[in-house]
């Protein structure tokens, strides 16, 4: 059911939620976290949809924060959805006028007790997420450098503002590549001298993978530009020849090692929902991300440069 409340208060929203819960039944029980999405009118549909799909794995209360018309009169409108398409609850909160500057005063009373809080900026994010009032409410703050106009600058900014609990979806996108790379190095390999990561020009995931590899393997890793889609190849020069993991079509990767037959493995690009589900699975600080990010700030990879 959907309930629309205009010119409302958090108290009235709370009452409406309780009433909806009674009518729908047990649907609202057992929620494991509160997910705050800071978005705008044009992007809210996609991000809320991704969140409620991820909510199948992690039933949660989704609080969509939409700031509108900052010059107008202060007003709070709420759209409450309970028992629709997912096990959790979704609240879209439209804040008009000066209220937009005090969104945390609306959100704080609506956060579920005793469960973690995650704040996600699907679009532009503050440079220091933990300093943002809505970020300060959360123990997990999810940004997306790929959504920024200048992803590399964004990564550098995130590095300088990093606090434990920060994470970025461009790092999440790197997981499937990273696990395949880790599996590749479970097998014996020759002495490596250098590496290369090829991807589209603006691809912070590729930048982070290159940085991570360089830090872990202690070799220079170059970042090269390809036509995409996404990341197309990671290769290493070894004494015996090249180890190459290439994925030209965004779906199937081919692993080539010196003296061995080529092997293929599915490596698809994941939807936002899957990324978010991975992000919500573990809520402890991601130290490996922090290290890769910090290293990126010191040795930013660029086309033709090495990490």
């Amino acid at each position: 059911m959907t309930i629309d409340l205009t010119e409302t208060t958090t108290g009235a929203i709370h009452d409406a939620l309780m009433q909806a819960r009674r009518q729908v039944g047990g649907a609202a029980l057992g929620m494991v976290l509160t997910l705050i999405i800071v978005t705008d009118e044009s992007a809210q549909y996609d991000s809320v949809r991704a969140a409620s799909q991820a909510g199948r794995e992690h039933p949660c209360r989704v609080l969509g924060v939409i700031i509108r018309n900052p010059a107008g009169r202060s007003r709070l409108d709420a759209e409450i959805r309970v028992g629709e398409g997912g096990p959790g609850e979704t609240l879209l909160l439209r804040m008009h006028g000066p209220l937009g500057q005090h969104a945390d005063s609306v959100i704080a009373p609506l956060v579920l007790p005793d469960t973690p809080v995650v704040t996600w900026w699907p679009g532009q994010a503050p440079a220091i997420p933990s300093a943002d009032p809505l970020g300060a409410l959360a123990q997990r703050r999810v940004t997306d450098a790929a959504a920024s106009d200048k992803p590399r600058q964004m990564l550098t900014a995130l590095a300088s503002g990093y606090r434990p609990g920060d994470t970025d979806l461009s790092w999440t996108r790197a997981t499937s590549w990273r696990s395949l790379l880790a599996a590749t190095f479970d097998q014996p390999y020759g002495n490596m001298t250098s590496g290369t990561v090829s991807a589209e020009q603006h691809n912070p995931s590729a930048d982070l993978i290159a940085t991570w590899l360089a830090g872990r393997l202690g070799i220079p890793v170059a970042r090269e530009v390809s036509a995409g889609p996404g990341i197309t190849e990671v290769s290493f020069a070894t004494a015996d020849g090249d180890i190459t993991l290439s994925r030209p079509d965004g779906r199937t990767a081919t692993l080539a090692k010196p003296g061995q037959a080529e092997r293929r493995v599915a490596l698809h690009r994941r939807e936002t929902t899957e990324l978010l589900a991975e992000e919500l699975r573990r809520l402890d600080p991601d130290e490996v991300y922090a290290e890769a990010l910090a290293r990126f700030a010191v040795h930013p990879v660029d086309e033709g440069t090495s990490a």
Binding site: A183, L213, R282, D286, V288
Partner: peptide, 21 residues
């Protein structure tokens, strides 16, 4: 494996355990 493979790190909990060939 973690001792041998430089890309594995017990803190890196996103990377799943993958079977060997």
């Amino acid at each position: 494996l973690w001792a041998v493979n430089p890309l594995r790190d017990p803190r890196d909990r996103r990377i799943p355990r993958v079977a060997g060939p």
